[in-house]
Amino acid sequence: MIYAMCFILFLIGLYGATCKKNIVKIILGLVVMEYAVNLFLVLQGWRKNGQAPILDGRTNLEEFAARAVDPVPQALVLTSIVIGLGILSLMVAIAIRLYERYGTFDVTEMKRLKG
């Protein structure tokens, strides 16, 4: 149920990336797709009545290993979020340059391939 809703959010981002003319809307569609995938991967690691994988002084290790949520998807998604910021800054830089060259954000107007 929740996984299916993550998939719907991903498809909304795909719709934005494929059907929109404005280049900022295309970037926002890619950002929405990234959010959906990150949320799906973190939800994979959730355990019913789980706790965050952080130890404090009183926790018993055996009980902790039986109750904590999966730390591996969290670590990989942490990497993925930071990389997403780098990709976003690169896309926005290209969009700003395209606006300066063509005077518009409309991708159907960007037809001159020659520099």
Binding site: V31, W46, A52, L78, I81, L88, S89
Partner: peptide, 23 residues
């Protein structure tokens, strides 16, 4: 879902990307 590290990182990255997109 028990991922406070990712929540903090997502908050910081969200603020930064909003600044970039508004620019």
């Amino acid at each position: 879902v028990g991922a406070p590290d990712i929540a903090i990182t997502q908050m910081v990255v969200e603020v930064l990307s909003l600044v970039i997109l508004i620019r």
